[in-house]
Computed example of a mutant assay.
Amino acid sequence: MTTPLDLDIVLVPVDGSDESTVAIEYAIGIAERYDATVHAVYVLGEEVVRAIESDAVDEDEVAAETEAFTDNVAEMAAEHDVEVTTSNAYGFSVNVKTRHPGSVVLDTAEEVDADFIVVPREPVSGDPGEVLEKAAEYVLLYASQPVLSV
């Protein structure tokens, strides 16, 4: 006899890529099925973090881009009557060697008490904005929650 899943929060890390949009669609579908909410964490990659810290890029500009993407997530979820919360996280630190996209996803999962994680498994394209291909394998190996890699 199988035990049904009891889900309250589905975590989906995003980075603005097409692959993360697909992951959002899966996360919304799972949340809709289990009457759960979705938490989307926008993970900023190394190049973006370094650019912010060196003032090479305006932090407000980056915030506006991430907000536009997470607004789109909320619109997608609203179409399915699924509640969404969002956050942003640096997926890299010049001061903390253990901070990387995978650890950020798992830390966020613990912070929001996520019951399930949907992580995009992206091809390595070299686009500096796409950081989650580095996180997928780590999350699959170390997450204590069930994980769907899409």
Rank of each mutant, 00 (worst) to 15 (best):
A78Y: 05
A78L: 05
E79T: 04
E79I: 04
H80L: 05
D81T: 13
V82K: 02
E83V: 08
V84I: 00
V84G: 01
V84Q: 08
T85L: 04
T85R: 03
T85I: 07
T85V: 06
T86G: 00
T86M: 00
S87K: 01
N88G: 06
N88Y: 14
N88R: 13
A89M: 06
Y90T: 15
Y90E: 14
Y90S: 09
G91I: 02
G91F: 09
F92P: 01
F92D: 07
S93V: 07
S93T: 05
S93R: 07
V94P: 12
V94L: 13
N95V: 10
N95P: 07
V96D: 15
V96S: 15
K97G: 15
K97D: 15
K97Y: 15
T98D: 14
T98Y: 14
T98P: 10
R99M: 13
H100E: 11
P101A: 11
P101F: 07
G102E: 11
S103Y: 10
S103K: 14
S103C: 09
V104A: 14
V105Y: 12
V105D: 12
L106I: 06
T108K: 14
T108N: 05
A109C: 07
E110C: 10
E110R: 13
E111V: 09
E111G: 08
V112Q: 06
D113L: 03
D113P: 11
D113K: 05
A114K: 02
A114T: 02
D115T: 02
D115N: 05
D115L: 00
D115Q: 00
F116S: 04
F116Y: 08
I117D: 03
I117F: 00
I117W: 11
V118R: 03
V119E: 05
V119K: 02
V119M: 01
V119P: 08
V119R: 01
P120T: 03
P120R: 01
P120S: 04
P120I: 00
P120E: 11
R121A: 13
R121E: 12
R121C: 11
E122N: 13
E122G: 03
P123Q: 09
V124H: 09
S125V: 01
S125W: 02
G126K: 00
G126I: 08
D127Q: 10
D127M: 08
D127G: 07
D127F: 08
P128Q: 07
E130T: 00
L132D: 05
L132H: 02
L132Y: 02
E133R: 07
K134N: 14
A135S: 00
A135H: 03
A136K: 00
A136S: 07
A136N: 01
A136I: 01
E137C: 13
E137K: 09
E137A: 14
Y138A: 14
V139I: 04
V139C: 10
V139G: 01
V139A: 11
L140M: 08
L140H: 05
L140P: 02
L141R: 15
L141I: 12
L141E: 15
Y142V: 13
A143I: 06
A143C: 11
A143F: 04
S144Q: 10
Q145W: 03
Q145E: 09
Q145S: 06
Q145P: 08
P146D: 06
P146T: 08
V147W: 01
V147C: 02
V147P: 06
L148T: 08
L148N: 06
L148P: 08
S149L: 05
